[in-house]
């Protein structure tokens, strides 16, 4: 079964939110996945800062990110022309704003005519409202791409299972069936980030 995919043209840069970085790190195969995809992956400076602040709670996602910078698989960039959108997305009522990393992901995608990888439903809703031209991807779409399946071969199920277990990756409902087929129902039920309704798939 091929899940729906919203991958844009190969020339479009892909901006990763902290959530996507954490999911990739949780999978244990971030480097292999991103290398296979071979796109211009960018992490906003605000996302990097957030991951560095989060290091106090014991996670070292920013260090894994540093390695990916070193391998030139991802690059880091601060927002420039997307400043106004960043301001709109961070200052205002709580329900209409996002934290800086999420906002910078959308603002940088807007600025660079890129696509934003965001799992958070509030973030996706606000991106559609305030930056409707920005294509949106979800973390799970980084995994369920044919080139990634080829690159990972038989390890694919373990890698996705790790992302679900270690990082508690959120999965869009449109991709639940793909996950269950990949992992098998027994393993899928061990993943708390998946709803119990997957039993019926």
């Amino acid at each position: 079964m091929t899940p729906p995919s919203s991958w844009p043209d190969a020339s479009v840069p892909i901006i990763l939110d902290a959530s996507a970085v954490i999911n990739l790190n949780g999978s244990g195969a971030a480097s292999a996945i991103l290398s296979a995809l071979g796109r211009d992956f960018i992490v906003p400076q605000d996302v990097y800062d957030e991951l560095k602040r989060g290091a106090t709670s014991g996670r070292r996602d920013f260090e894994a990110l540093d390695d990916l910078f070193g391998e030139k698989i991802i690059r880091r960039q601060d927002i420039g022309a997307g400043y106004d959108l960043f301001e709109t997305l961070t200052i205002g009522p709580s329900a209409l704003t996002l934290d800086d990393g999420e906002a910078a992901t959308i603002a940088l995608a807007f600025e660079l005519n890129g696509a934003a990888v965001i799992d958070e439903s509030k973030g996706r809703r606000l991106a559609l409202q305030l930056a409707s031209g920005v294509p949106l991807l979800a973390s799970v779409e980084l995994f369920c791409h044919p080139v990634v399946e080829n690159a990972l071969g038989g390890k694919m199920a373990d890698v996705v299972f790790n992302a679900l277990q270690q990082a508690r990756m959120q999965v869009l409902p449109s991709h639940h069936a793909w996950i269950v087929k990949l992992l098998g129902l027994e393993r899928a039920l061990l993943c708390h980030s998946l709803p119990r309704s997957i039993r019926q798939l």
Partner: peptide, 20 residues
Amino acid sequence: ELLSEGQLAELLKIGRVELR
């Protein structure tokens, strides 16, 4: 959808995975 994952992680001063 009053607060996003990022906003809550910052507010509660915990990591994203702990929050999830």
